[in-house]
Design a protein around this nucleic acid. Structure first.
Lengths: 340, 340
DNA sequence: TTGAAAGCGCTAACAG
DNA sequence: CTGTTAGCGCTTTCAA
């Protein structure tokens, strides 16, 4: 079909010069309504799409944004979730005519190596901006490599409030519902993240004066038997947690199973929250509440911020609020049965 | 640092014309060794990187490949694994100076809608080729939309042998080790994929005359209790499977737990294979064997094939073999204990 | 409000 | 083997 339709084709079809077509595409106000209409019709009729490369050369703007992320190594099994991040970001960019370009960075790469890599990319594509995805957003060397070459940087944090700690958020939800004896089971994957969430949980409990974190913190093991044993050890005694937070969804399911085997009703006798959502959680009986990670939304927001900053290079724009961690409430949640 | 270094800068630094620089970059043989050396030194010294946009305009080749994938909808939780696919593809492209561009397609999108979307992308970036990622590789409308606009298409299949069926591969491994009573537990996610794997398992067993598939096929349930019950129902009787295949890694762990509780030794009395690998499988006791999905390698191979096809537009290139599904053997595997 | 001219950085033709 | 001449499709800058 339409092969090689250029601005020139549109111009002659509309009976104007290419400048006028260009002005219409670039939202310039200095075009008469009639001319604009004719051009728009010609564009639609011909199925014209301006060439990114040509616009990039002539205008100095590539309309390309770099999505800089850490490429997963065999051991770093930390799931980044690109499956959902990338479509969200792409969707946010496309209405503005922007596109995302991938830039995987090897984990723990030497600053010099990643600097060279970024230099090559910047030279080749001259991106208008870059989004540093976690956990890369804390790498000062990458940010410096980008900014020293005049590439503006955004992260998922935006300019708003700092991101909540998932462990803290879950603990707070339970504290708000009256729970004090709250247990926490970390996941075996990604020690750094586990430590981070655990710290959040601890500080939330400490704020309320609960000491549960001294008794009810345990590490998740890959062996199902270990998790089941752990759950039994916590739930059989009279003094037991009224709520448990698990990092892995599987661990939540295992705890649920033990509770039911012990004739403890969920959520009446025990509330459950997983820090990671999974379809299986929604389908279990009862369904288990989980924290919803808004990373895709925050990535989309970062792209939008980048683009608005690029377009209105001066206007005092106020960034929309950063979406926060939300809890997907399911039947595994109830108020604490009583004060213990 | 280096801002706006062009071919012209390199040319004057090396004391040649830009054409010579261009020839060096494009591997043209028609350059004297001395000139080549001086140009290469100048390139290195200046940190010159040619502009993709300019090369695209002048040469007609964008050096951009479209990665067309299905954007995951809330329900279509089928994990595509972009986390590992994309870095692998990027790595395969970059040594050739190519880059990947994302093209998410909404699931079950109307052919007209995705055609329009692809038309817009093709017009804007004029990709040199496109890789259709599963499950999109079977959508004839997408392939047509691409090819009618002269965009060559590749899939993960390559030109080699068709991809193995994971269910069949796992069953075959066990059959080869003498097992006949082989159970199969499907995953609750992605019914289509489950059906596909199950069919492969069935045909493998049928070939060997085993009838186990009439007795030992079950559907995985999100409730852990259900899976544990299922495992007990299979393993308590005297006539029981000597091997079990599970689609989800969690189910394999659950079966392992039940077996051990029943004093069945794994792998002596029961062999286990999961169709999906997971770090937890490697860390359990004993570690559980799993099929290794070579999708990232096959994606990288598809990119390489695309690029070689693009470069030697005529040469009768023979594609390297497509990597097959491999089994990550772990201690959960043994020969069948006896004929039953 | 519009058009004409001049490139952006590179490669494809040609000459030498 | 090397340099020269034209553009690629668009936006910018300047005139009209």
């Amino acid at each position: 079909m339409g092969k090689g339709i250029t601005i020139e084709d549109v111009a002659s079809a509309a009976g104007v010069s290419r400048q006028t077509v260009s002005r219409v595409m670039n939202q310039s106000p200095r075009v008469s309504p009639e001319a604009r209409t004719r051009v728009e019709q010609a564009i639609a009729a011909l199925g014209y799409v301006p060439s990114l490369a040509a616009r990039s050369m002539a205008g100095g703007r590539s309309r390309l944004l770099l999505a800089v992320f850490e490429s997963p190594s065999p051991e770093t099994q930390a799931t980044l979730g690109l499956d959902r991040l990338l479509p969200a970001g792409t969707l946010a960019c496309s209405p503005h005519g922007y596109r995302l370009l991938l830039e995987p960075i090897a984990p723990e790469s030497a600053p010099a190596a990643s600097d060279a890599q970024l230099a090559a990319t910047i030279g080749a594509v001259q991106p208008d901006g870059a989004i540093l995805l976690p956990p890369l957003d804390s790498r000062a060397d990458l940010r410096a490599a980008l900014e020293s070459r005049k590439v503006p940087v955004q992260t998922l944090h935006g300019t708003g409030a700092p991101v909540e700690n998932p462990g803290e958020a879950a603990a707070q939800h339970l504290l708000d519902r009256g729970h004090r004896q709250i247990g926490f089971i970390t996941g075996p994957s990604d020690p750094g993240h586990a430590e981070y969430c655990l710290a959040g949980y601890r500080s939330a409990l400490a704020r309320k004066g609960s000491r549960a974190h001294r008794h009810f913190v345990a590490e998740d093991r890959p062996d199902l038997g270990d998790v089941l044993d752990l759950a039994r050890a916590w739930l059989v005694p009279t003094i037991r947690p009224t709520a448990i937070i698990t990092m892995r969804s599987e661990a939540a399911l295992a705890v649920l199973h033990v509770a039911q085997a012990l004739k403890l009703a969920v959520p009446r006798d025990l509330s459950l929250i997983a820090l990671e959502d999974d379809p299986a959680l929604a389908r279990s009986h009862p369904p288990v509440a989980a924290l919803h990670d808004p990373a895709p939304d925050r990535f989309a927001a970062a792209c939008t911020r980048m683009i608005t900053a690029l377009e209105n290079r001066d206007a005092p724009r106020s960034d929309p609020p950063v979406s926060a961690i939300t809890l997907t409430e399911r039947a595994s949640l109830a108020r604490a049965p009583r004060a213990i």
